[in-house]
Design a protein around this nucleic acid. Structure first.
Lengths: 339, 339
DNA sequence: CCACCGAGGTTTTACGTATAACGTCCGACG
DNA sequence: CGTCGGACGTTATACGTAAAACCTCGGTGG
């Protein structure tokens, strides 16, 4: 029977390697840390490397972190992992981190877009910095007390609590959506907004309100899930008064709910009702017809966020960025029906 | 202008707290570690707590980890975060971990279901153990060299490299699918299989082959994404010979691709073609009609995996588990068309 | 002939924590 | 009256690493 090594199975330390190679611990550290040029002979260095390999030596990260006072690890806080968008953000952040020898610990704030209870208690890993993405305004409070450098993604650039900001130009995105729909002749709108009190959604609402001033706009809020969004949309579309001809959604998930509601109400998309989403996730091309939506550069977003954090850690003062977005017109939006 | 504390801004240590409270560092450690009963007076203890609070003391995790020789942190390796299934697995694992004061570091194997290059170099965090979920068979090799306790999810239970196994009863799931479709009168099948060389998919294929012996079965492999799956299915369905009346997919993502292909070919689902998925992710209820699929207890899966790891770390020898799955019949499967 | 230097190391120290081992004072008991 | 044992702490040490400071020895320039 295979016994998987006694649990605390003493791993070899740099001192073990030193003893086995007949040198001092300091020499081992120098060689393996690649700082031996001119201080240790090529012969000795190779011997040390060989010994380390044969013993299966792996440096103790805890000890190294303690000694160096940093961990080369960043925490990425996201509202919810089930939202594909944040998976892409993570990919970008992790790639940028890896390029600089950093690691990323992912921490999904447990209450969806709600407040993060104690990210640091949960993330046992010692951290060098934090990237908080698209957090609810109240959730951000949890980070005020920390003395860690903080980069905020998708939050109010005026907020002084962060060392740097990286944003998506959601205002421009929303403007492109309204321009698109106004150009198609729509004058009656339903704005299906996210119920989460987040800066990024506030911007969308304000932009939309401004761009559609003078037209007929109703707003309904819904949590970010298909079923709830469908119910909210169904109620709003079945309500009395003139029916909107276009539904603008804060997120693809909401838009999918609207499409399902439209089908239940016997409304054809886009002939009777145009629907637009936001994010351009895989979801957008799954529904029939495919969603007109705003594409966000999710991966670049994560990458820029990590680069900003790395800059802060290097003592620089990184500029605050706003990344451009694009409108992707697809089948879910069409000319307004003749009234 | 708000200067966010000098980057390396010396945080207070337990010794600083001790000095400020007029006690020794050991006393601080005892009090804050909640091991002071009978060794320190209530008055002193409260004074220490108060001082720590006012100084904003936070223990240095690196030092604690070094001292204790463990980190209370586990690594969860998943093939791809964009697959919603693994987000749920993480949720379950994180919950179980938190209940025992553990943290979870998420590591998405960068190459999808391909080999994980060096999980330990990337996860800078020191680790107590590893949970590897649904890894490709070759990717598992990356973990052989490690001396960390390893729990495998969704992999061959006969594999002796792991300290424990937790599995989903995918064989039973696939049998339920075939029973369901055979009961509906289907005799011509297409199996749209995942191209990833993973144990869990091998089991599905073998089970399907056995359950459908004697009927007409073709197999096509596709990567796990909607577009590729759609193309593969379209080719297979348009090919010469008798057309299958049911397509059995290894994953909901593949099934969605099939639905889109069916629409392009002018085939109605389920009247002309039945389609089944696997996993029961959000995707399954987004397409029209909604997918008949196999529901996997993803969150419990993650929870059980973490519990198994915790048991191993506690020196126990946890039993290998297989969790039950259920068939969720929906609109995408119906009676076989009369030929 | 001696001071100096560079090559090739070693000795030592510090990081911050947890805890085992060790004091000290005082009341009580034999 | 001695000493015993809580109550309440303190002192000392170890975890494994990185790196500053130091040592030794043979060659070399002045």
């Amino acid at each position: 029977m295979h016994t998987p090594e006694p649990i605390g199975g003493a791993r070899p330390t740099s001192r073990d390697v030193a003893r086995a190679a007949g040198v001092s611990q300091a020499t081992v550290s120098l060689v393996l840390g690649d700082k031996w040029r001119g201080r240790v002979s090529e012969r000795t260095a190779e011997a040390v490397r060989e010994t380390a390999r044969s013993l299966g030596y792996r440096p103790n990260l805890a000890a190294r972190n303690l000694r160096l006072g940093r961990t080369r690890t960043a925490l990425l806080v996201v509202p919810a992992l089930t939202n594909e968008f944040f998976a892409h953000v993570h990919t970008g952040a992790a790639a940028a981190a890896a390029a600089h020898g950093f690691g990323v610990v992912l921490y999904p704030s447990p209450d969806g877009l709600g407040p993060a209870r104690d990210p640091f208690a949960s993330a046992q890993a010692a951290l060098d910095g934090v990237i908080a993405s698209s957090m609810a305004t109240d959730a951000l409070e949890a980070f005020r007390g920390s003395d860690l450098p903080l980069v905020m993604l998708d939050s109010d650039p005026a907020d002084a609590g962060a060392a740097a900001h990286v944003n998506l130009d959601v205002a421009d995105g929303m403007r492109r959506v309204t321009d698109h729909l106004l150009g198609l002749g729509h004058r009656g709108f339903l704005h299906l907004a996210s119920a989460a009190p987040s800066w990024t959604f506030d911007v969308r609402a304000a932009t939309l309100a401004h761009a559609l001033r003078g037209t007929d706009v109703r707003t309904v809020r819904s949590p970010l899930n298909v079923v709830a969004a469908g119910e909210a949309a169904e109620r709003a579309l079945a309500a009395a008064g003139p029916r909107p001809t276009a539904v603008i959604c804060d997120d693809d998930i909401l838009a999918v709910g609207v499409c399902k509601a439209a089908r239940r109400l016997g409304l054809r998309v886009p002939e009777d009702l145009s629907v637009t989403g936001f994010d351009d996730m895989a979801l957008a091309t799954v529904v029939e017809p495919e969603l007109t939506t705003v594409r966000l550069p999710a991966e670049e977003f994560g990458r820029r966020g990590m680069e900003a954090l790395l800059a802060v850690l290097a003592g620089e003062r990184p500029p605050s960025l706003t990344l451009p977005v694009t409108l992707v017109p697809r089948g879910s939006s069409g000319p307004a029906p003749a009234s």
